[in-house]
């Protein structure tokens, strides 16, 4: 009988422990709880300047600007809900030869990220 109770205790404790850890891992994996955002080019290998802002923060407003050799040539505001991806396709940019084209995005909390391509 004692052996049975020890086994039962071991199994119950295992289940409690495993369930708790599985739940914790699922919770931790939810990127929306981590207050981060990402900036990346949609087509990393070609000359396109289309980019995405992936928002996992409570800020929903993002200001973006495009600079050609440090000169601002375009800017805009975009609203992106938490957990959503905002895709931005700049238009009318033609003279990019021999220039460093930089995308700078500033979130509502003033955090800034930059990506660029050199032509």
């Amino acid at each position: 009988m004692q052996n049975k109770i020890i086994i039962a205790t071991f199994i119950l404790l295992s289940i409690f422990s495993f369930s708790f850890l599985a739940y914790t891992e699922e919770k931790n994996k939810n990127i929306d709880t981590q207050n981060i955002w990402f900036l990346y080019f949609n087509n990393p290998k070609d000359q396109s300047l289309n980019f995405s802002i992936e928002n996992h923060t409570d800020n929903t407003k993002f200001h973006w600007e495009i600079l050609a050799n440090k000169n601002k040539i375009q800017e805009g505001m975009t609203a992106i809900k938490k957990g959503a991806i905002g895709k931005i396709s700049p238009t009318g940019i033609s003279d990019i030869a021999n220039k460093k084209m930089l995308v700078r995005v500033t979130a509502g909390d003033n955090s800034t990220k930059e990506i660029y391509k050199n032509f």
């Binding site: 981060i36 900036l39 990346y40 080019f41 990393p44 290998k45 930059e114 660029y116 391509k117 050199n118």
Partner: peptide, 18 residues
């Protein structure tokens, strides 16, 4: 000028050799 930064977040950056 050989590298493009194509991805940015707090602790990771990706550079592409063009």
């Amino acid at each position: 000028r050989d590298f493009w930064q194509i991805y940015a977040t707090n602790d990771i950056a990706v550079f592409y050799k063009n």
